[in-house]
Simulated scan of single mutants.
Amino acid sequence: MAPTWLDEQQQQTWRTWLAVTELLPRVLDAQLQRDAGITHAAYVVLAMLSETPDRRQRMSELARAANQSQSRLSHTVSRLEERGWVRREKAADDGRGNVCVLLDAGWDVVRRVAPGHVAAVREGLFDALTAEQAAALHDALTAVLDRLDPDHTQRQR
């Protein structure tokens, strides 16, 4: 069976998507390196923890919320622990899993860095779009995400 090639518009869209998914993370990483000496992946972990009750979350749930594999999250959390921003502890409810806790020093980092990060996201993505384009982008990305993760097991609930 012959492959169904992308048409010209699909090819252009695909290549544009590839460029954006390379360039936007670079912009966000540069801002976070400049402001806090951390990667975007590390910031996402801190931010996800900052939004949870008691600033703590099971590692498995945190991996899903941060869109990281368990292994990558473990490495990220290790680097954050070295800085004194988070700590791991056994889950109190069953003792089987681990919980990651955002410490006060990590919370201070989130509060300090968040305004610049939001500005970088706004400048790198949303300032280039009209309100209608932003809504259409949301709808399009949601449709793609629903196709990639139909049962919502790969993302935060």
Rank of each mutant, 00 (worst) to 15 (best):
T4Q: 14
L6N: 11
L6T: 12
D7F: 02
E8G: 06
Q9A: 08
T13R: 13
W17H: 12
W17E: 11
L18Q: 14
V20N: 15
V20Y: 12
T21L: 15
T21V: 15
E22C: 10
L23T: 15
L24S: 07
L24Y: 09
P25D: 01
R26N: 14
V27H: 14
L32A: 03
L32Y: 00
Q33A: 07
R34E: 14
A36D: 03
G37D: 07
G37Q: 07
A42K: 14
Y43I: 05
V44C: 14
V44A: 15
V44W: 12
A47G: 08
M48Q: 15
M48K: 14
L49P: 05
L49E: 06
L49K: 06
E51M: 04
T52V: 02
T52E: 13
D54S: 10
R55L: 08
R58H: 14
E61S: 04
L62V: 08
Q68H: 08
S69H: 04
S69E: 05
Q70L: 11
R72L: 12
R72P: 05
S74R: 10
S74T: 11
S74W: 10
T76I: 13
R79H: 15
R79W: 14
R79C: 10
L80W: 02
E82L: 09
R83A: 09
W85F: 01
W85G: 01
V86L: 03
V86T: 11
R88T: 14
E89I: 06
K90G: 15
A91C: 14
A92H: 13
D93G: 02
D94R: 02
D94G: 03
G95M: 04
G97D: 06
V99C: 09
L102W: 09
L102K: 09
A105F: 07
G106H: 13
G106Y: 13
D108L: 10
V113E: 03
A114T: 09
A114W: 06
P115W: 01
H117G: 03
H117R: 04
V118P: 00
V118G: 04
A119P: 00
A119F: 06
V121T: 05
V121A: 08
E123L: 05
T130D: 09
E132P: 01
A135Q: 06
L137F: 02
L141I: 04
T142W: 05
L145R: 05
D146V: 01
R147A: 09
D149I: 00
D149V: 03
P150H: 06
D151L: 12
Q154K: 10
Q156L: 02
